[in-house]
Amino acid sequence: MMVPALLLLLTFCYVPMFGIIIAFQKFYPGLGIVHSKFVGWDNFKYMSEIPFIAQVVWNTIIIAFMKMAVGIALPIAVSILLNEIRMKLVRTGIQTLIYLPHFLSWVILSGILIDLLSTKGMINQFIHAVFGSKPIFFLGDNHWFRFVLVLSDAWKEVGFSTIVYMAAITGINPSLYESAMLDGANRWKQAIHITIPGMLPIIVLLATLNLGNVLNAGFDQVFNLYNPAVYETGDIVDTAIYRMGLVEMQYGLSTAVGLFKSVISLLLISTSYLLAYRLANYRIF
């Protein structure tokens, strides 16, 4: 039964893995992999010498960590608040609304964001009306770009992330709340002493699994929002690989950077799965 799936994986996932040979070549498409000249570690040496790559790796790590911090803290807070809403209709209504953006693509959301955040867009009109300050071009300003990335990512994914936390809250034994109420604990105390400890195993698990994503800062989002003015703070490994490979045709260098990323990601993901297994007895299959 698995044969068709295995054949497709072989063709489209395992065959490209051998393509990493290009990382060790001065590759010309006309010559192909067989005839292109081997240059050993030259591409990697070159990669480590251009400051641009270090900047890009650094941007990636910063953006990814900012997203992770927000992406863990905010859904926890939102699910605790959602859990406090007693009217079921209101709660499910809010849930429906906040899950939705997860299903929209970054192409669409970026289109909307570019419009909202432009110098004549709604946000700037609002800022102008309230503070009377000059318009800020959020998507072209190195001070703002990372915050735009983190906040818009949070807006898109927070709702969807609450699903798992809400499930964890539902799993908490109701008698714990009853006895706490008898002892005079208010809502706030209950949240801190019962709900959060009850969610802790899931929080630890998801935080651990997230470690594998340190080099994934979100290609779809960055690619659709960035522009040369914010390369300094917003260019990430994946967008750089794309530009070097498919725009500037530096196949060897692009593949070398890609291999560098793949190897580190492999190590990170394996470590995170191992940690998750040790800490939370989590198994992939």
Partner: peptide, 21 residues
């Protein structure tokens, strides 16, 4: 077999090799 499947999540050949394939 399960690892043959899961390994494709763990390791990615890269954009250029993928495109050329």
């Amino acid at each position: 077999y399960a690892w043959i499947f899961v390994f494709t999540i763990l390791f990615y050949g890269g954009l250029i090799p993928w495109y050329m394939t």
